[in-house]
Design a binder for these strands. Structure first.
Lengths: 143, 143
DNA sequence: TACCAAATTGTAATAATTACAAAATAGGAT
DNA sequence: ATCCTATTTTGTAATTATTACAATTTGGTA
């Protein structure tokens, strides 16, 4: 059940603890780019002793080890993503969903830019998602 | 002195007020991507009656009219930019500077992506800036 | 099994932003 | 020029995300 997450932590020489395993499992099963509150309140149900601070701490160490990445697209809170592959993100200003965007981008794997050392590249798109556009059209048609 | 900002506001049918003019001027003269606090405390010196809330409100209406854009790269606060041309941003994790990156990017002027309507595209690079790398090398050499 | 550094927990502080109501003001009508 | 009104500014009080910190607990090793 948790073997892959145990291995992941051991491979990075990070102590294996249940909060860490649960957070990894949650992110692996929910590719919705949840914020800390969503992760915390979901895990809290099955693990009532869980502390919000632990979620912050755990995500921080996972981030330092590049196991997860944090997304600043919303501007008000960090969102977390466990996916490895290079991809961009789209934020729907209507429903708030953050979606993965697979798009060819010549700058994504850059390590130097203008003399600066690049450790992280993120591409953000913001607008109205396909689904919300569909809803809008439906309302107009029915009106 | 302020004519260009007056025109800018009138062209967008926004009321011309001194806080708005001062904020525009400040952003036009400081391409450092300041946060609200920096804008506020700087303008407060010459306009003691200025309120922080006004800075928030003004930036909000300027943003709605696409006169300024907000940058979420830092993850803890919004940074503001008045520049029109399409460009990306680099955040130095050491000194905190946010620098403009002029880089060819095929996705920057995109209006549709995967069926989603795109209103805004932002490319963020994070790492260590040229200047901070230079400092590090200097320290090592002298040590 | 015992130890210790590291992790977890809970509470309290901080920082950015928003909500809201009262006073002031820009810009159009008179 | 004066009046009117919707909009803006202002100040204070909330709210929200995150960090600081100290006490307790625990994973991994000897």
């Amino acid at each position: 059940m948790y073997e892959k997450y145990v291995k992941l932590l051991k491979d990075h020489a990070i102590k294996v603890t249940s909060p860490r395993l649960e957070i990894l499992k949650f992110l692996d099963e929910h590719h919705t780019h949840p914020n800390v509150e969503e992760i915390y309140s979901s895990l809290k149900k099955k693990h009532p002793s869980l502390s919000r601070t632990t979620v912050y701490n755990s995500l921080e160490i996972l981030k330092k080890n590049r196991i997860v990445q944090s997304i600043t697209i919303s501007g008000s809170e960090l969102r977390y993503d466990i996916q490895g592959g290079l991809h961009h993100h789209f934020l729907c200003n209507r429903c708030g969903a953050i979606l993965d965007i697979s798009i060819a981008c010549p700058n994504m794997d850059r390590t130097v830019e203008g003399g600066h050392r690049v450790d992280e590249v993120q591409g953000y798109f913001k607008g109205i998602c396909k689904n919300c556009q569909k809803k809008e059209k439906g309302w107009r048609t029915n009106g």
